[in-house]
Structure formats: structure tokens, C-alpha cells
Simulated assay, not measured.
Amino acid sequence: MATIFYARVSTVDQNLEHQQAQAESAGFKIDRVVADHGVSGVSTRFADRPNGKRLFDILREGDTLLVRWVDRLGRNYSDVRDTIQEFMRRGVVVRTVINNLTFDGATKDPMQQAVRDALIGFLAAAAQSTAEAIKEAQRGGIALAKANESELKYKGRKPSYSRAQFDNTVALLAQSASISAVAAATGLSRQAIYRIRDERAAAEASLINWGM
């Protein structure tokens, strides 16, 4: 029985090695790493990704599919829910690094099944709502940047956060993560996190101004 770690890296400044190191530091023993690069979790279904599709052939009954969080499987409610359910149907256990959640199809108890499926549905919905929150922040930043277009010759101070750190911060805050938890996950200062939380459009506009 193998544990395969799947990572989806949607932008150039997201780091596959960081995701893997986070899993290993949490105590997971990884037998193989499979990743999709430059793939959107919103517009591309899991089964349509080159390596997402391969996992349906690679994983066998009794194997474990490990992901950092369910949003690595996708950011579309139906796609995430159906993907987890399909792997469980095949006897594959799905686990997350964050919160150490485990989903499998072993239980036959209807109450346990109902609780498990409800949690899968909730997390799938959270993945989509987080993506929508990020998109809304981007729209707000673009609008602010356009409104100040005549003044863009002065870019202001370069942001202390990357695009990936910004997106991850928005995602974690949408999941009601604490400031300390966000800082630990992203490596950002509390001041930077507060700015992203309280002045999201301005923080996004700063990234746009610097071409990030």
C-alpha cells in the first residue's frame, strides 16, 4: 500500500517543495509525488489534468492519496466532491495534511457515512468559496489600480508578499484561520497579514502595480 502525495501548482511562484516538506514535517511518509503545474483548480476538472487523470490509473485499492488541503484537488464544489467520492469508491483513502483529515469508504454505518459525506460537501463548498473570495480580491485590486492609473508612475513600496502568499493568505482567512496560523503557513509577518485582511483591494493593487 503506497502513499502518493498530489500537488497542484497553479502559479510560477507557488512551491511544490514547500508543500511536500510541510507534509513530511507533519509526519507523513510519502512514497511518490505527483504534481500538475500551471493548472487552474477552478476551470480544469481534476480528471482533465494530465497527472490528475493518471492518478486514477496509479492508485490501487488500499493506497492513500495525500494532499495539502482539498483545494489542491480543485476549487469547484461538484468536482472536489465527486473526485473524493470516486477515489473512496475505488478503495483509495484520501487524507489531508492540514487538520489531518481522513476520508475512506470502509465504514458501512449509515450515520458515519452521512457525517463523512456532509464534511466532504462542506470542504468542497469551502474550496469554491475561497476561490471566489480570491477572485473578488483580484477584481477589487484591478479596479483600484485602474482608478489610479494616472498615478502609476509611482508604484509605492514593493509588496512584502508574493502573489502565492497573497492568495494563500486570502484562502486561509476565508477558512477562518487565525493570524498566527496564517503566519505559520505563509511565512508572512502579522503586519502583512493584517494589511491583506483589512485592505485587500489595496494589497491586490500593489501586486498589480509591481507586475506580480
Rank of each mutant, 00 (worst) to 15 (best):
R95Q: 09
F46N: 10
T96H: 05
G74S: 05
A127D: 04
Q128P: 04
A185H: 03
T102I: 14
D79A: 01
T83H: 01
S206C: 03
V70I: 01
H18A: 14
Y154L: 15
H37A: 06
R139C: 08
G187H: 04
A183W: 03
N51Q: 12
Y6F: 15
V94E: 05
F122K: 07
Q22E: 15
E24P: 03
T186S: 05
R195T: 09
G41Y: 08
V94M: 06
A7G: 08
L55T: 08
V97Q: 08
E61K: 12
F46R: 14
R60Q: 15
E199K: 09
F103Q: 06
A124L: 04
S180R: 12
R81L: 15
V39E: 10
G140W: 00
S162H: 09
L119Q: 05
A183G: 01
D63H: 06
T83E: 11
A106F: 14
R32N: 10
N168S: 12
F56L: 02
G140S: 06
S43F: 02
Q191S: 11
G41W: 09
R60M: 13
A184G: 10
S178P: 00
R163L: 13
D36N: 03
A137G: 09
Y194W: 06
Q191N: 15
G52A: 00
E199L: 08
F103Y: 07
A203E: 15
R116M: 14
R157E: 13
